[in-house]
């Protein structure tokens, strides 16, 4: 069963969302890539994800990956942030990408941890790196950066070399140790 069938099932179940499958990529020769994504509004996300996990035609039992992206300087972007869910079906062997767009200030997306346990750490990472909050997450803290760090490093307006945090430590000399 191909991904197109899964998208069709999704369209039949949620006709009001206006879901249309789009290829992730269109090559220079005009050929679309074989990977499809759909756009889902944040407030209906959990409903859609639960349906995608449970329905016979979709059966996405696993969340292969979850990642954030900051579309600040992206050509023709309308929204600032997106969280991209990479769904994987063990039964049918197909994949689907679900994108949820959110904006400043206070970007919030309901947590998918109730649907897949595997979403727990990736969501924490997105929170750590982009500052997108996930209401309903059991333990939403920073995961990679120190707890008292204030910025969100993967946002496009954060410089590559940081703002001097890496130099701000006590110096240990031979005399002091």
């Amino acid at each position: 069963m191909a991904t197109a069938d899964a998208v069709q099932a999704l369209q039949e179940r949620f006709p009001d969302l206006g879901i249309e499958p789009r290829p992730l990529m269109r090559y220079l020769n005009g050929k679309p890539s074989d990977q499809l994504w759909v756009r889902v509004p944040a407030d209906r996300l959990l409903e859609v994800l639960t349906f995608l996990r449970d329905d016979e035609r979709t059966k996405f039992e696993a969340l292969a990956d979850l990642g954030g992206i900051d579309y600040l300087n992206y050509p023709d972007a309308e929204d600032r942030f997106a969280v991209i869910y990479n769904l994987l079906s063990h039964t049918h062997g197909h994949r689907l990408w679900v994108k949820v767009f959110v904006n400043d200030p206070d970007p919030e997306i309901p947590s998918a941890t109730s649907v897949w346990k595997g979403a727990e750490w990736p969501e924490r990472e997105v929170f750590d790196m982009f500052g997108i909050r996930f209401p309903g997450h059991p333990d939403l803290r920073r995961i990679l950066m120190p707890q008292n760090f204030v910025d969100y490093p993967l946002r496009k307006d954060y410089p590559l070399h940081g703002k001097g945090e890496r130099e701000a430590f006590e110096v240990l000399t031979r005399d002091s140790a």
Binding site: M145, P153, Y158, P159, L160, H161, G162, K163, E165, R166, E167, F169, E170, V171, L172, T173, R174, A177
Partner: peptide, 15 residues
């Protein structure tokens, strides 16, 4: 790794 997170040489902080 000239990035925000990596200390650029431990000799700045440890002999």
């Amino acid at each position: 790794f000239d990035t925000y997170a990596v200390v650029q040489g431990i000799d700045q902080f440890v002999p």
